[in-house]
Design a binder for these strands. Structure first.
Lengths: 135, 135
DNA sequence: TTAACACTTCAAGTGTGCTTGAACGCAATC
DNA sequence: GATTGCGTTCAAGCACACTTGAAGTGTTAA
């Protein structure tokens, strides 16, 4: 059974060791083992858990929500409906975020185009584009 | 020339008035007018600026970065290259975020599917799917 | 055997992005 | 003329997600 030290996990996820300790303290990284001399031992389940944590964090979940989710997960039989509700909700959230982000991407591209035109105008001593509505 | 009170702007963007005052204080919402009795007067330029602020914030820009961007914008002639660089950088950031978010969406969907199967298994008294790698 | 290194706990501190509270101003309505 | 409503300033406070510091333990290499 493969094990990992805190610095190994730290490297894999590019997270400081302090953050891993913090996640454990907050109860979102559970059942971390200890060696004879109290050093943390991580297993593949923790690697998987951290993958989920990072994913959910990127989609905007807070530590508190993560805690809820994983405590549901620990009591699967009893909380399966709660989990699915939470997951469906998160799915909708991500869908919204994707929509927004696509729109925001268009906005940034529009700005790039506008200021590229402004640059050209400045370089050629031409009148600057009037795009006052947009700017 | 259309003008807006703080509560009107607040409603349009669903941002508390305190946030609008804060943005002004931080120098990302500039040249806000005042009435005879010191009340804030916003113009269309502020509505446009706020649209940009909200967009950039969603794409992960900090208040400090926004400040940089808009101070470049105020000195267009001189800072056009800095602005374009900042915008291109932001464009790349958004592209990365879009990629990540798509992957995260897939991850959430996978979880939904997995726990839907778990639910079925529980309901029918079947063995639970072993998807230990993924969980 | 002593120095370096990797790790531990626990409490306190930090940065970001607002939010809240207190005390006040001005204009309109009862 | 008092109350209500909408606004003001300024300073302090808060929530979240970590981060840092101090003091200590245990293994490893010179």
């Amino acid at each position: 059974m493969k094990t990992y030290t805190i610095s190994e996990v730290s490297k894999i996820f590019d997270l400081p060791a302090s953050t891993l300790r913090y996640y454990e303290e907050e109860g979102i990284l559970t059942n971390v083992g200890r060696s004879a001399n109290h050093q943390r031992i991580y297993y593949d389940m923790h690697i998987n858990r951290l993958r989920s944590i990072c994913c959910f964090k990127r989609t905007g979940m807070s530590i508190a929500q993560l805690k809820d989710f994983f405590s549901f997960e620990a009591d699967e039989e009893h909380s399966i409906d709660d989990m699915l509700a939470l997951l469906e909700e998160q799915k909708v959230t991500v869908e919204q975020k994707l929509k927004e982000l696509h729109a925001d991407y268009a906005h940034v591209q529009k700005k790039v185009r506008f200021y590229t035109d402004v640059k050209k105008a400045i370089e050629n001593g031409l009148p600057k584009p009037d795009w006052s509505d947009y700017k």
